[in-house]
Amino acid sequence: MLLDVQDLTIDIPTASGVLHAVQGISFSVDEGETLCIVGESGCGKSLTALAVMDLLPRRAIRAATSLAFSGRDLRGLSREAMNRLRGDRIAMIFQEPMTSLNPVFTIGDQMIDVLRQHRKVSRREARDRAVYLLDKVGISSPEARLAQYPHQLSGGLRQRVMIAMALMCDPKLILADEPTTALDVTIQAELLRLLMALQQEFGMGLVLITHDLGIVSRMADKVAVMYAGQIVESGTAETIFNDPLHPYTQGLMACLPAPERQRMQHLKAIPGAVPALVGAIEGCRFRGRCAHAQPVCERDVALREPAGAHPYRCVLPAETSRDNARAVLGAGA
C-alpha cells in the first residue's frame, strides 16, 4: 500500500467553536492507482490532501489511527524528515496555476531548486532534467521556457509547468487538488489525459481531488465521495457509477449533464446547502437536503458495507437505494 489513511480527523478551533472539517475518513492508494475524492467545496477534500502533506494551517489539529506512506508512519515524522519527503516522494499540484508559481523567479530557477533540494546534482544536471520534463508535459521549446517568468505563460502552460515541477524528483505519489478547475474546458481534457499518461508511465499513485464527476468517470480507479467532512460512499469507479447507493451520490449524478438523457431536460441541482460543521454535530450530515430523510437519520449513521454492496453511509437498505437510483437517474442506472 502506497498511502494508507485510517480515521483521519481535522479539527480547526475558531472563535465560534471547533470546526470539525474532517471527521474520521479512511482511504488508500496503491502504486499506479488513481483515487478520486469527490465532493462540493467545503467538504474537507482539500484539507485532507494538505493533512497528508502536513501543510495544514498552523491552528488545525490533525489526528489519525494510521497515516502511512510506503509503510512509513507520517504521524511521528520530524519536520525535517517530512520536508525531505515532500517534493521528493510525495508531490502536490494545486488548483491555482496563476498564483502557484513564484512571480519573481524563472521557471527554470524554480524547477532546478526542487531537484537540488532533494538530490546532490549539479545545476547543469538539474537543468537537463527540467528540460526533459517540460518536454514530457508537452511544452514546446523547453530550453527557452526555462528563462521565462510565470506571468509570460498562460494558465494552461503554468499548470503544465507545475506538473513538471512536481515530477522533478520522480515522486511515488501525486496529490492533485482540483488541478484543472481554473482552466478552459478544452485544456482541462488535455491536461487530464497528460496526467493519466504520466501516471501510467512513472507508475505513480494519484489522488485526484475534484468536484467534477465527469472527471472522475474518466480518471478514477477508486472513488471516495465526501460530504460535510465524511466519506459517504466509496468503491471502485465502476461500482460507484453503476450502483450509487448514497442519496448524495445519486444527487450528484443526477446533476451531471448526460448526453444519453433527454436533451432538453433541465440540469438538476441538489436543494439546500452544506451544514455548518462548527460545534457538536449529530446524525446524517445530508439529512437536511435528502428526499428520503427519516426520524432515524437524526442519529449518527455509520459507514457500512452490507453483503452484495460497497461501503456507504445511509440507513436505507441497498435494495431501496437501488430503487431510488432508478427513479432519480432513469432506467439506465
Binding site: G87, A91, T99, S100, L101, D113, V114, M165, A166
Partner: peptide, 10 residues
C-alpha cells in the same frame, strides 16, 4: 500560493 507550492515541494 507560491510559498505553499515551495513548501509542498519540500
Amino acid at each position: 500560493d507560491y510559498v505553499r507550492t515551495a513548501r509542498a515541494l519540500g
